[in-house]
């Protein structure tokens, strides 16, 4: 439940402002430093500008650049490919469908706080 010290950074990529804000607030309350991006391109820009989050919480269905495209871009960039990714989607997605994303965890929306924190702890602990 308690995150690894000092303060892990999590990039939240979701096109829904309320989702972003809620997740950011919940993470903030739980000892994380949240960063936000409203689509894949925005997230990629921040990463290219030097942001290095400890994990990325990634929605799949987004305008402009969706989660699949962002993940593809991340995997293609050696500096970014190693950042753990937690996929966070409203669609049911099977392990087979999720395989190409090479995500460290897959969460299905809506997700409760505990499930979210558990997944991040697992991802960061292993990373």
């Amino acid at each position: 439940m308690s995150p690894p010290a000092p303060t892990p950074t999590v990039l939240v990529v979701d096109d829904d402002a309320d989702v972003r804000a809620s997740v950011a607030e919940a993470l903030s309350d739980s000892g994380f430093r949240p960063l936000q991006a409203e689509n894949g391109r925005e997230a990629l820009r921040r990463l290219q500008e030097g942001a290095r989050p400890d994990a990325i919480l990634l929605d799949l269905m987004m305008p402009i650049m969706d989660g699949w495209a962002l993940r593809e871009a991340l995997l293609a960039a050696p500096a970014l490919a190693t950042i753990p990714v937690v996929v966070f989607t409203a669609h049911g997605i099977t392990p087979e469908q999720a395989a190409p994303l090479r995500a460290q965890a897959v969460l299905r929306k809506p997700v409760g706080l505990q499930a979210l924190l558990d997944a991040l702890a697992r991802v960061l602990g292993g990373g």
């Binding site: 989702v19 607030e25 919940a26 409203a90 809506p110 409760g112 706080l113 979210l116």
Partner: peptide, 14 residues
């Protein structure tokens, strides 16, 4: 339908 449930649930949990 599910997108609004996400912030709702997180807000309640928080």
């Amino acid at each position: 339908l599910k997108t609004p449930l996400t912030p709702l649930l997180l807000q309640l949990d928080t």
